[in-house]
Write a protein that binds this DNA or RNA. Sequence first.
DNA 1: CTTTCTTACTTTACACTATAAAGTTAAAAA
DNA 2: TTTTTAACTTTATAGTGTAAAGTAAGAAAG
Lengths: 127, 127
Amino acid sequence: MNPSDCEKIAGRYAYDGLDRIIHEKARLSIIASLAGHSEGLLFNELKELCSLTDGNLSRHLAILQEADLVQMWKGTRNNRPQTLARLTEHGRRRFLEYVSRLERVVADASRLTGQSGAGAGLRPRTT
Amino acid sequence: MNPSDCEKIAGRYAYDGLDRIIHEKARLSIIASLAGHSEGLLFNELKELCSLTDGNLSRHLAILQEADLVQMWKGTRNNRPQTLARLTEHGRRRFLEYVSRLERVVADASRLTGQSGAGAGLRPRTT
DNA sequence: CTTTCTTACTTTACACTATAAAGTTAAAAA
DNA sequence: TTTTTAACTTTATAGTGTAAAGTAAGAAAG
């Protein structure tokens, strides 16, 4: 196959690998935070790092836990309940997979630079 | 500020710049396709490249047009109506901006490689 | 020439989901 | 013992992605 042909194959830009659960902005924040902190992060640390509200963070963590991407640990610090969140090994792998797909998006985008278009003689839509 | 401190600042992983309109998977597909084809793409070409249904593509194109990221041109080929979609200059800029934020996500992720965690002596949650 | 078929979309209705407001539990302070 | 604060959880809602149904117009068939 001619290399330039791959531009035309069906699904070339479908980005199937962009895992829905990870792709959501808030959860991407959470997972990226956790990826950089293998020892885990406390609920409030995550809240700050990701600029999320309590309820929002709680819901997304539940979704991530459900999907076995994140593991939650309950404990106490200074007689206060504390929740520690950590990436699971599965979550780590899924995230790395996700990122490798992201890299393709970025690579596709670099193709944009330095292109200029030519008009096709069609009239602009009126509706 | 110590470089290692930036890991802790509030909002460090909020990824505010991840434009909601572009971030959506289907629209990211569409925009990336268009970014690589400055001459524009026909409705059916986009449909194929992004593996989207007619209705789906139509809705997302309308949203992108509304946001002035994509421009639509109506014309005819072989006595058949044809719609050509193209990135606007504004859309091109917003996409490049978006991609530069994506690159940060990818950069953050590279930090993941080669880290191993240590347990914190907390018990696994039971609920 | 008019009926059916195909093409190229658009509109609509539904199911899903992200979000924040309200609720809960328990320790600490007053 | 009442109030306040901390640390979440649950719930209600508004918003959104998706596919099924709908539309318009040219082409083919009879």
